[in-house]
Design a protein around this nucleic acid. Structure first.
Length: 497
DNA sequence: TGAAATGTTGGGGCG
DNA sequence: ACGCCCCAACATTTC
């Protein structure tokens, strides 16, 4: 084959890239292309924080390809038309790409393949973004898994033997006339108002940074992962989520790196930590499995009993939640961390999600949309799984009575209040005993710390005890069969950036 | 990947 | 010494 296109999507890496490696083997000339077509993911087009990450990740990929003597071509969608045009311009006879399983994008891919075939261009797709693709695992009865534990057992058994990651392919020098490319800035991925300083300070997108983060995690954090991953005041998690979402790192590379670390002396904790981390990768794959087999679940409850659930309507409460002004310290700290950095610790994600759906009684889709807009690691499968789990309506969901108490969660998982002090400077002078529940603090304590509830920091927008009891009643009675789904309209999610 | 209510136990104060 | 009460600490049940 003379010329092949490699269609990059959420696999913005050169190592362990099956499509790129296959193209490099098959064709004399490989043209890497990224087609910007956010509308094709509708209604879940990338949010502001994701676009920031994408901009920098494309920049990193472009630089890495340039260092190989290649060049990343940027085009605007629709994807089918852009690829057909580029194939015609370059004489490419095939398009290579790694499969994706987000339902709208998978349907788009199928349509693109038809369009390419009609134009006489072959296409070939590869596994690359999941260790086990959704069709690779089936229950005994031949169906899709809906419960994590049996999925996890099957997943582990299937992965006892797995192929090693592919090396970075050698890319042969491009021809004299590279096809035209848009400038990265022309994609307008960065915000016009530069709110992204907090993201820049915390994250470095790109393949090199992803591999460095994986190494650092395995060197420094994995031994303590089992406990420390629940502590939002420490750097105890892998922080690989966005790297994995954009495919700067493949899960196969992560698995291989874990397995490659020879068990050192005294490695019991390391082994436990590695197992716990692997389980998180398992949840990621489970989320993709479920969304693939139940594609409606990004919009509607998986459990039909929730179709008639009576969600509350409270735009002021939603806005307070979004901006970290609920008066509940751990909730506000989490929402402010999200707004400022594009990321939130997973323990705190569960707490703020429980607060939105159970204490405020708002539809989980409101939360899912806000997370999708503001998280750098926003991922439709993971986000859907997480929110439906919290709401109690999803696959293997939390039981309806599992309602987090943000005061107790702060006591347990932020024992020194370091997380709260970082994100709630107006409360920082309160002693540990009252910082996580200032609404109960004696007047003298508040005065000594210079805090006035209601002006320096909001009074709680709901009573935790009463709202918990109300949620228990609502969820208990809603467990019969329901009527029509009553999802909130789009664009009710408050201000965009 | 929960929290609160309820039940049980045992130590210590005290008459 | 003994019974009684209180309550913290822990276990179990319930939502």
């Amino acid at each position: 084959m003379r010329t092949a296109l490699v269609w990059f999507r959420n696999d913005l890496r050169l190592a362990d890239h099956a499509a790129l490696s296959a193209a490099a083997r098959a064709a004399e000339r490989v043209i890497p292309v990224y087609v910007h077509a956010p509308e094709e993911a509708a209604p879940w087009a990338p949010g502001s924080a994701s676009r920031w990450w994408l901009h920098h990740s494309l920049g990193a990929l472009g630089a890495a390809l340039a260092a190989e003597g290649s060049r990343l071509i940027l085009r605007r969608g629709p994807s089918g038309a852009a690829l057909c045009a580029l194939a015609a311009e370059t004489g490419a006879s095939a398009v290579f790409f790694n499969r994706t399983f987000e339902p709208a994008l998978a349907a788009r891919d199928a349509a693109v393949e038809v369009q390419l075939a009609e134009a006489g261009v072959a296409s070939e797709s590869f596994a690359g973004n999941l260790l086990l693709e959704p069709a690779a695992l089936r229950t005994q009865a031949g169906g899709a898994f809906r419960v994590f534990t049996p999925y996890w057992r099957a997943w582990q058994a299937a992965l006892e033997v797995s192929a090693p990651p592919l090396p970075r392919p050698r890319l042969r020098a491009r021809g004299a006339n590279p096809p035209p490319s848009l400038a990265l800035d022309a994609l307008a991925l960065l915000p016009r108002i530069r709110w992204d300083a907090g993201l820049t300070a915390r994250f470095q997108p790109g393949e090199a940074a992803a591999l460095a983060r994986l190494e650092r995690f395995l060197d420094e954090a994995v031994a303590d992962y089992t406990e420390a991953r629940d502590r939002p005041d420490t750097a105890g998690t892998s922080r690989l989520s966005a790297h994995l979402h954009f495919g700067e790192l493949s899960p196969r590379q992560a698995l291989a790196a874990i397995r490659a670390r020879a068990p050192a002396p005294g490695a019991a904790a390391r082994a436990r930590g590695a197992e716990a981390f692997l389980r998180q990768l398992g949840w990621r794959e489970f989320a993709h499995h479920v969304l693939h087999h139940f594609p409606h679940t990004s919009e509607a409850p998986m459990d039909p009993r929730f179709n008639g659930h009576r969600w509350r309507s409270d735009s002021a409460g939603l806005a307070a939640w979004q901006r970290g002004r609920t008066g509940i310290p751990l909730v506000d700290a989490g929402m402010r961390e999200l707004w400022a950095t594009g990321w939130m610790h997973n323990r705190v994600r569960m707490v703020v999600a429980s607060f939105l759906t159970k204490n405020l009684g708002l539809h989980w889709l409101e939360g899912a949309r806000w997370f999708h807009e503001t998280l750098v690691d926003a991922d439709l499968a993971n986000n859907t799984m997480g929110w439906q789990w919290t709401a109690g309506s999803g696959a293997d969901a939390a039981p309806y009575y599992r309602i987090f108490n943000p005061v107790l969660q702060a006591e347990r998982f932020d024992p020194d209040r370091g997380y709260l002090r970082r994100w709630l400077p107006e409360l920082a002078r309160l002693p540990d005993e009252w910082l996580h529940r200032p609404f109960l603090a004696p007047a003298a304590v508040l005065a000594a710390a210079g805090v006035t509830i209601g002006s320096d920091y909001p009074a709680p927008i709901v009573d935790l005890k009463r709202s918990r009891e109300r949620a228990l009643e609502t969820w208990a009675e809603g467990r019969g069969t329901g009527a029509t789904p009553a999802a909130p309209r789009r664009n009710s999610a408050g201000p965009k950036r």
